[in-house]
Nucleic acid binder design. Structure first.
Lengths: 215, 215, 215, 215
DNA sequence: TATGAATGAGGCTTCATTCAT
DNA sequence: AATGAATGAAGCCTCATTCAT
């Protein structure tokens, strides 16, 4: 019976941890990275400040954890998209998946970009942050194989595979920034249309003109 | 004679102002936006904290000034490049100019991106920050004309001109981020080559296959 | 049991709050409004500077609170005195109560006068300061009724009731200043006697000569 | 000829000194005691900050000087009024003169009250401030004689003469405060009328009922 | 003599983290 | 385990006064 109790306690503990993560993310999105304090977070979850430190050794660790969860979800989407692409149904599936993931919530995308940057400066987080690299490496490897095969099939120009996905990453990242920049926003009259245009630019990277007709 | 003295004094004052700006930029680049204090700056220039406030009414104003100077230099480079492009020698001149400007010092490029974002949150800087918009508007207008003419010459797909330069902006911005991301950096074996590849992607945006041969 | 603990904690917290208020008042009286810093206060209570901000959002709020407490006590004394006066035992009870309240600690009286003035300039305190007005309004209303009845009874000249209590306020205020002015102090050989004289001037305001004999 | 020049220089120096005093007073009245800096003053006079220190050894001395000038003018008015009173034309002349002097510019009256208080705390000003005492002593002496004579003439109750003028001082002082207090201001519908009422209270201090008819 | 740039002590406030209960 | 009061370092900014020119 006390085993049961213990299990329940552990469950509750985990749920609370998730609440903290959720609350933090929502506060971060609402008020910006520089305007969220541990106290705000605790208040939102309706727990004491000290309790936060029972779950995370530091504010940075909490942030890192958030980052990791985000990246993990992204990885899973990417892997699914790569599988789809392999079947030949839609070569652009990974590209689109990535793009949509980022652009569907550009606010969040940019937040994590900033967070990662900030955390990188923290020596205590270096180790934990490396796990992000592991996650990404796994996706990179799959993308490498995928693009290699397309190159060998003559569908793409013969450059190192990472040229493709990193160019694409850059383009998407930039689109996210564009979304937010008050100043560069101004000329834009039709944002969704522009985003489609940009995505299209991305999808077509490296396709030689004559190969273009194949899609 | 006292006129002469006064001129000297003003000169010295300006030089000091410039050295504050220089020191600030270098500290910002070295330690990151969140790790530069007014005291650090004063120490680096070897002046008192109060002196900084003789030149700038607030830390924010100092930053805004830095931003403005950077943007002004960029604007001038862009306008020169647009002129070059108009002569027909190199249609891609503006694109290249922009790309090189950002990529030649990606650290700085990203810094200013972040700085602008942060300053936008400060109500006191809103007015000063609008001058940046004026600067950019001027470049946008020239780019609009330039792209419009190329579209009408049938050299580019017929989409709103800003699609071109904003996509390009996004791509460059992303390239800058790529440069910094410790994690996304890893697969890269040949950074300059990759940057060229990305720039090429940008240059070719919107050129229909058959028009491609014209260049 | 934990309820008991919580109560104790709240109690302790309040006590500390009160000791901050007490220390602040005593420092204010000792060193003057311009020579009390948050650090001084914290030192006197033997707590950290930050702790002060757990109790009050700003130095101004702390001062406002002091002011409010003072005014509240005054209000209660005044209302009691007005009740006494209504019984007919001593028509001058409110006047005397007010006078004694101020003159018994003129140092404090003047301090709060200054404090209120200073706080009025702080836009953040405007709302909180209005509560003082509410407190006073309540006393004013009671005084209006009281004086009105005396006027109608023919005991006082028929002028707006507030003439009486505001003249009286002015006289008392001035007496407080007199108490402090090192320079105007000099001729005074018998301060209590002078204060009695002044109070008497106040008490007799508006009593027509022939009515004078009635008291 | 150089004597002439020297005289001119001295004249100019004095004029500038007066400009500084004038500018300071006007700034003090406009922005309040806590919001006037030496720089503001210098700017208003259109001279360098350093120049201010050629005329006054410290900001405090400048203020003290302002105070002295104000008090001197008041003294002269008071002495003239006492002379008038001695002729028997208007016994209340000194009282009225004082009251009008303060109430005609209550803003200024209160400013100097505050200034004197602040300066009293400055040990460096103690000596200079004593000269104010000398000025006042001179007026007090004359008032003593005046009131003494009225008392002996049976026109006033027999109390120490300073009871009269200090009570009066207090009343006026308080009226000035009343003028400014945002909170105590509220019930007032007719300020000039109220001020007259208060002045009347002051004028009648100490007059026994039967003596009242004499005026 | 006039200047105004430079100074730096000193004031207020914030917030991640600790620790006694 | 949970709490939240307490901490104090650190950051920004002000301003009377000094002093080299």
């Amino acid at each position: 019976m006390s085993v049961e109790k213990a299990r329940l306690r552990v469950l509750k503990f985990r749920q609370r941890e998730q609440s903290i993560l959720d609350a933090t993310l929502s506060l971060l999105l609402e008020h910006g990275e520089d305007n969220v304090t541990v106290e705000t977070i605790a208040d939102k979850v309706d727990i004491g400040k000290g309790t936060v430190y029972k779950h995370f050794t530091s504010k940075s660790e909490l942030y890192t954890r958030l980052l990791y969860d985000y990246e993990l979800a992204l990885k899973e989407q990417m892997e699914a998209a790569i599988e789809t692409a392999k079947t030949g149904d839609d070569y652009a599936a990974p590209a689109k998946a990535y793009f949509f993931n980022r652009i569907s919530d550009p606010h969040k995308a940019r937040l994590f970009q900033r967070l990662e940057e900030k955390l990188s400066a923290d020596p205590n987080e270096k180790i934990r942050l490396e796990e992000l690299g592991v996650l990404r490496k796994s996706v990179f490897d799959k993308l490498n194989i995928f693009f290699e095969s397309r190159i060998q099939a003559g569908e793409l120009d013969d450059v190192p595979p990472y040229y493709y996905y990193l160019s694409y990453w850059a383009l998407t990242q930039g689109a996210v920034e564009l979304f937010h920049s008050t100043s560069f926003n101004k000329p834009i009259q039709n944002m969704p249309e522009l985003m489609n245009f940009i995505m299209d630019v991305g999808v077509k990277i490296g396709r030689s003109p004559n190969k273009d007709s194949q899609t």
